[in-house]
Nucleic acid binder design. Structure first.
Lengths: 189, 189
DNA sequence: AGGCTCATGTAACCGGTTACATGATTAT
DNA sequence: ATAATCATGTAACCGGTTACATGAGCCT
């Protein structure tokens, strides 16, 4: 469901092609909503059928033709309704199969689960480094927009920072605990 | 996919009925994997068909009959394979339609989005309070288990704490920022 | 009498993923 | 040549959700 509103949200900024939307998702929402291009094209069709958007084919000579979509009044209303519904369940109710693996960590040795957590921590650190490009990206895409529009983009980036930092700190604590257990075991032998 | 492994993980502790599993999910994994009872019963059927678990009907006189499932050797192997695969993509790649709403907050007034964030913060605080019961729950379910099994349960709870606290702090910062913008606007009028 | 716990399911639906398919132009 | 960018899709699948359905026994 959310993909539809992500698309409507972007088209509410300005008309775009499917390809533009794929790029837009990749350079912003991807932090918390990864979208496949196949899914985006599918959703565009659905939204057009519902009358929330309408598309116009643009013939290009130097590039393949494209279809530029614009949001309709009905679409805008739907989008605003969604926006004003308030936070969804997933705000606090997140799903993580990774945490499920941690939960069942007792089936591994402390050394093995520490390894898993170390790999996780490394991934998080790489992710954090990746996020350093975000402020630039916000400036680039928001250069012709008012600040009151882009501070919300910054909010989501801040959230991401806190989230990842929390992951790294937590992983450190867990690894330390597991290492101390391992040492105790060695002493006992 | 993950629900299947959650079930296998629990049955790896001890044989259980579908009903028991529903309860087990509610009192532990629900923090990061909410499971519908309908889904659990469906998954049990699939797992039995695959030969990962097997069920035995227990006739009860004072309560409805029940079917107790146990994990098979094949099932245990599958479970261990999953466990040793390491962290899944969703470890860093979380989805949140709530953050999507924040991202598009520019379509509301600062006062309106501050309101949304305030509601979110309240929900988080309630969630945090709810989590205070977790250590008790761990003791209750883990009283006959070795510590090295239950520290992993504690790890997931710690993660949850950090996650929610981060949400609350972040919301506070955002609300503050939005309030300061609102005041500036008022001064300009 | 009414609500709770125990106990197990079916059916319809749908959002999203994976894999596959095509083809032009532009830059190296 | 060949890789990258621009550009748009189809088909099969599946994990998960929502809604619905049933019924016994226990507690107040």
């Amino acid at each position: 469901m959310s993909l539809a509103f992500g698309i409507l949200g972007f088209l509410n900024y300005t008309p775009m092609s499917g390809y533009d939307l794929v790029k837009a998702f990749e350079s912003s929402l991807q932090f918390f909503w990864h979208a496949q291009n196949s899914h985006i094209y599918l959703e565009l069709k659905k939204l057009e059928k519902k009358g929330y958007i309408w598309g116009e084919t643009v013939i290009q000579s130097e590039r393949p033709n494209k279809k530029i979509f614009s949001i309709t009044e009905t679409g805008r209303k739907e989008f605003m309704n969604w926006l004003f519904e308030g936070a969804d369940k997933d705000a606090t109710h997140f799903k993580s199969s990774f945490l499920m693996k941690v939960f069942f960590g007792g089936n591994m040795t402390p050394a093995q689960s520490a390894d898993m957590l170390r790999k996780f921590k490394t991934e998080c650190e790489a992710y954090l480094k990746n996020m350093e490009a975000a402020p630039e990206s916000i400036e680039k895409y928001g250069y012709d927009m008012e600040t009151y529009q882009t501070i919300y983009w910054q909010f989501t980036v801040d959230y991401g920072y806190g989230f990842i930092k929390n992951c790294i700190d937590w992983a450190k604590r867990c690894i330390q605990k597991l290492e101390s257990i391992n040492e105790e075991n060695l002493r006992e032998d």
